[in-house]
């Protein structure tokens, strides 16, 4: 099994997509962070983001890294669909005819890659958010704030989003369709249901909402107070999605004819 996982990791790291994705993720998280820095404490429609020197702002800023989930998800989609696109799936199944093992190896590799991406974005947050707080005269304390829990939430979320991508990729097999579906899901559907508090009754059950619950972000960003599940329930929902997507990947792959 470790050989199969290593083979899956090699597949990813012997092509160029992974570092392009990593770079794009860091740039976009950085842009989002730029907005949070610029609009900290600025009043809009009678409410406001917390000020930059507060612990609440640090939490919101830190948690913005969870937006990196989409890039890990796209990477997961590509881990699966590029096998069909370039027909390397043939060689993969010739080497490992027990296809279920291939899917398990991909899921484990996806979790590892997601975790590595999470570590990268957390380091990025550390070198941007901490100076932003301290330069504004605030005090940044890991122990006093909820940063460790948020970090753990980001780690789990990004790791699982890779699995979502693998499941989606196995389902659609077409690379472009898979990536478009992932982007539409993350940027349109989830943004609507998790961005607007009035829709949180639905949004809290979606992966994005569950991820927010896991980080327990309870800060009014100007649109009203969110209504997430408790953190433990968010974790269960998120892992549940991971299992469902892994099951989808297995079910759609095990018996299909490779022609």
């Amino acid at each position: 099994m470790s050989g199969l996982v290593k083979a899956e990791l090699r597949k990813l790291f012997t092509t160029r997509l992974w570092w392009i994705m990593l770079l794009v993720m860091l740039v976009l998280v950085g842009v989002g962070l730029g907005f949070l820095i610029a609009f900290a404490g600025v009043e809009q429609n009678g409410s406001a983001l917390p000020a930059r020197d507060t612990a609440a702002w640090a939490e919101v800023a830190w948690s913005s890294a969870s937006s990196g989930g989409i890039f890990v998800m796209i990477l997961g989609v590509v881990m699966m669909t590029s096998e069909y696109r370039y027909q390397t799936i043939t060689g993969t199944f010739l080497t490992t005819p027990r296809r279920g093992l291939v899917i398990v190896a991909k899921v484990i590799a996806g979790l590892l890659v997601g975790a590595v991406f999470a570590l990268a974005v957390l380091i990025f947050q550390a070198i941007t958010v901490i100076p932003a707080v301290t330069l504004s005269g605030g005090e940044f304390s890991l122990s006093a704030s909820r940063i460790p829990q948020i970090s753990l939430g980001i780690l789990v979320t990004l790791a699982l989003y890779a699995v979502f991508g693998i499941g989606l990729g196995a389902l659609v097999r077409n690379q472009i369709a898979g990536i478009v579906a992932a982007v539409v899901w993350a940027y349109v559907i989830e943004s609507i249901f998790t961005g607007i508090p009035a829709l949180h009754s639905v949004g809290k059950w979606l992966p994005g909402g569950a991820a927010q619950a896991l980080m327990s972000i309870d800060v009014d960003t100007g649109l009203g107070r969110p209504e997430w599940l408790p953190a433990w329930a968010g974790a269960i929902v998120l892992v549940g999605y991971g299992l469902v997507f892994a099951a989808v990947a297995t079910a759609t792959t095990v018996r299909r004819d490779i022609t």
Partner: peptide, 13 residues
């Protein structure tokens, strides 16, 4: 087994 000639990722050595 040697099947189609196209089953490689073009970006890989």
């Amino acid at each position: 087994a040697v099947l189609e000639a196209t089953s490689f990722h073009p970006g890989r050595t």
